[in-house]
Design a protein around this nucleic acid. Structure first.
Lengths: 135, 135
DNA sequence: ATTTCACCTGGAGTGCGCTCCAGGTCAACG
DNA sequence: CGTTGACCTGGAGCGCACTCCAGGTGAAAT
């Protein structure tokens, strides 16, 4: 087992068939094989690459940058340093993203505590969960 | 000090003036005051509310849901339970988001280690940082 | 043999969240 | 008094990342 139809690939990769076609069209999936009747045939390697794309995409990397990465990947071993740098930058951004989310989550949880009345026992509290909204 | 021009508000809130207008237009900023000549005047409360919106927005809440939240907030104290539920749901999603990011970051870091040669000492490793990309 | 089915193509359309624009108003400054 | 500058409005436009569509093909099932 090492080659997959578009349908299988969509299922396994989590991308829709349309997205797979789109990715191939813009150059994110270079060298996808075709069978005799012109249909795409995906390999295990393709699936692995799709996994990487998925990971980058879901961590917020824009397509333009994934494109750069995939061009580098096509470029062979001389581009390893650049690829490394790109990934390290991205890793950094993911780190910051997580940190920001944590702070914002804290703010939301503070609000939740406020709403659920776990904070301060003043009678006013029930009626004045200040939203900063005018009456 | 408790009232701000659109410009100041944009600066303090981090939203552009255009976005502030847009938010008012769609109902996310109900009851923004106007001065004699029709210009918007923002209060401290408005700024606080904008802070909340910012937090929700940046944690990935879609505008439609923020809209629901702000309608609830306008609805007074009877909606506190619903608002609480909404925020708890969102908090949950943020939690999951962070968890997913962590996993994906781990994958990226694994790749980084691979690229930086910290993994396995085989000579082949240098030339075969398998991308799953065909030659 | 014909119907079904998964797939193909190029290109148009969609949804979201803004962002920009033209044309106008008003208060303040020199 | 003229000009700046910040703001106003309604509505059009944009960038991103898909997603959908019409019309067609080729292999397989009935």
């Amino acid at each position: 087992m090492s080659s997959y139809s578009p349908g299988e690939t969509a299922e396994k990769s989590g991308f829709s068939i349309d997205t797979l076609r789109y990715y191939e069209k813009i150059g994110l999936l270079p060298g996808i094989a075709r069978n005799a009747s012109g249909r795409r045939v995906f390999s295990d390697g393709d699936l692995q690459w799709l996994g990487m794309l998925r990971c980058l995409r879901e961590t917020g990397m824009p397509i333009a940058e994934m494109l750069r990465y995939s061009e580098l990947a096509r470029g062979g071993d001389e581009t390893v340093r650049e690829r490394l740098a790109l990934l390290q930058d991205h890793d950094q951004r993911v780190e910051e993203q997580i940190a920001r989310l944590r702070e914002q989550q804290a703010q939301i949880q503070w609000k939740i505590r406020l709403y659920s009345g776990e904070i301060c026992g003043e009678p006013a509290a029930a009626g004045a969960v200040g939203e900063g909204l005018p009456a």
